[in-house]
């Protein structure tokens, strides 16, 4: 049995967002972080490793600097890393991305009892689509929005959260689970982990490595091939400048209540 965990490096949206003059995101000027939900996936993988002794392989698709993130996750406890990286893969939508990552996972080798973990969704796209689409391409079952996991033998029992409660689901392995933050609290890198992470194996899968895999339809990858394309992107109009009220006393509060009442807002 082995454990595969898929992660993504994303711009940090907890601070200010830098937008270029043409309205697109200035990614270069923003700090990158490990996608928050993916950290819960990493923790789920490491917990399962603690219980079973299974090897954890962390996989990402991204530009070469994503290696730094993979090293960090190996410092947390992952055993090996795979970086899927190629110019041909750039600009892929979720459909295209999932074919490529699925081919990468197939190359690593998916065996009975293996478990793949993903985060629920990435904060730069917010689609939550790549996890389920990897599962579909690999022909394995998925459970998304997972808040609790128990492995018993060849099956996994987990809780899938719904808006108004949850379902308890038993799923056969190999399977793919997408994790939410309620699942666990991610661990920190350990000192010995940081020392060791540079000697752990990191393999790069480029376009040449994966292009002949039948899971990839070469006509549907990259910016040009992706089934979905951007028709137009635009910035929403700035809201009219709001009113900053003078002072912060009772008079100010009465004034605000009066304005809201006059506009029938309250």
């Amino acid at each position: 049995m082995k454990i595969i965990v898929c992660v993504k490096q994303v711009p940090d949206t907890s601070g200010k967002v830098a937008v270029k003059a043409d309205g697109t995101l200035d990614r270069a000027s923003m700090a990158t972080i490990i996608n928050p939900d993916d950290l819960n996936a990493v923790e789920a993988a490491l917990k399962l490793k603690d219980d079973t002794g299974a090897k954890v392989i962390v996989v990402t698709m991204g530009p070469p600097p994503a290696e730094g993130m993979l090293r960090e996750i190996m410092a947390m406890g992952a055993d090996e890393a795979v970086l899927i990286s190629g110019r041909e893969f750039g600009g892929s939508d979720t459909f295209a991305t999932s074919q490529i990552i699925a081919a990468g996972i197939k190359k690593i080798g998916l065996e009975p009892e293996d478990v793949i973990f993903c985060g629920r969704q990435a904060i730069d796209g917010d689609t939550a689509q790549v996890g389920p689409q990897i599962a579909e391409k690999l022909g394995i079952p998925q459970v998304s929005y997972v808040a609790e996991i128990e492995k018993d033998g060849k099956d996994i029992t987990c809780q899938r959260m719904l808006e108004d409660g949850y379902m308890t689901i038993r799923v056969k392995t190999p399977c793919l689970l997408t994790c939410i933050k309620e699942l666990n609290v991610p661990r920190y890198m350990s000192v010995s982990g940081i020392v060791d992470c540079y000697s752990k194996p990191l393999t790069v899968f480029d376009f040449e490595t994966l292009k002949n895999d039948p899971l990839i339809d070469l006509a549907t990858i990259g910016l040009k091939g992706s089934p979905t394309n951007i028709f137009r992107s635009f910035t929403p109009p700035q809201k009219g400048v709001g009113i900053m009220l003078e002072g912060n006393d009772k008079e100010t509060c009465d004034k605000l209540a009066g304005m809201l009442a006059a506009k029938h807002i309250i």
Binding site: Q129, P132, E136, Q142, R160, D217, T220, P227, T228
Partner: peptide, 23 residues
Amino acid sequence: ATNIGRDLGPRVAARLHTGLTAD
């Protein structure tokens, strides 16, 4: 785009070999 729609949509789109736009 409920928890169920977001579980089902990507799976269906991938099997049908078509694009899906989220949310």
